[in-house]
């Protein structure tokens, strides 16, 4: 199995925020913490696009590189997880992450932000699978139940894809061929100028 990946199809996302709500509900995420959010560009103008953003579970994750206490690790499926018992709440991961994925329960200074929280790809944490401790710290472990992240599974337009990177890319490739134009991916025209929208 390839690495687990998220991909948001900007041509399909209708900014309903159901992925955000589903995530908060499934993991009982506290107030002030958003593991996932929907970002809209050109709001109300021609060319408006929305994408759902959370931790992208980077192959070479910058959060892992900057963490002074090494709380991060990757599972065999490439999911970037962290250990809240080791976190000192310094916030370096927040500054390093290009997606703004790391979240903190309190907005205050060094060491008083509380333990970092982020998307776990619905894979829980280092605690024993299905234990109360795992749920309280990291939320539900859907991967261990043989399920995919809820945000992607309940997406009504199937804009948000999650799972084995090979399968995700196959689904997306078929969509691009069916559409018959560009990739529809957010940022495509900037990455490949002059090659269609």
């Amino acid at each position: 199995m390839a690495r687990m990946k998220f991909l948001c199809d900007a041509e399909r996302c209708i900014e309903c925020n159901a992925c955000v709500t589903a995530c908060k509900n499934e993991h009982e995420v506290p107030w002030g913490v958003n593991r996932r959010r929907v970002v809209t560009i050109n709001d109300g103008k021609p060319g408006e696009r929305s994408i759902s953003v959370a931790c992208m579970h980077c192959s070479d994750a910058p959060c892992m590189a900057v963490c002074p206490v090494d709380v991060f690790y990757q599972t065999d499926q490439g999911v970037v997880l962290h250990n809240k018992d080791l976190c000192i709440g310094c916030g370096y991961c927040f500054y390093a992450c290009p997606f703004g994925a790391p979240q903190f329960p309190q907005a205050s200074n060094f060491g008083s932000r509380g333990k970092m929280d982020k998307c776990t790809f619905c894979a829980g944490g280092p605690e024993k699978d299905f234990s109360d401790a795992e749920f309280k710290k990291y939320g539900r472990n859907r991967l261990a139940e043989g399920k995919l992240p809820l945000c992607a599974e309940m997406c009504s337009t199937k804009a948000l894809l999650a799972g084995d990177g090979d399968q995700v890319s196959n689904i997306y490739r078929e969509r691009v061929v069916a559409r018959g134009f560009g990739s529809g991916a957010w940022g495509w025209s900037r990455a490949y100028p002059g090659q269609g929208a």
Partner: peptide, 14 residues
């Protein structure tokens, strides 16, 4: 077995 179930659920997204 868990990985097989996850792969199977990918078909729904397709």
């Amino acid at each position: 077995q868990q990985l097989r179930e996850i792969r199977h659920r990918m078909n729904i997204q397709a």
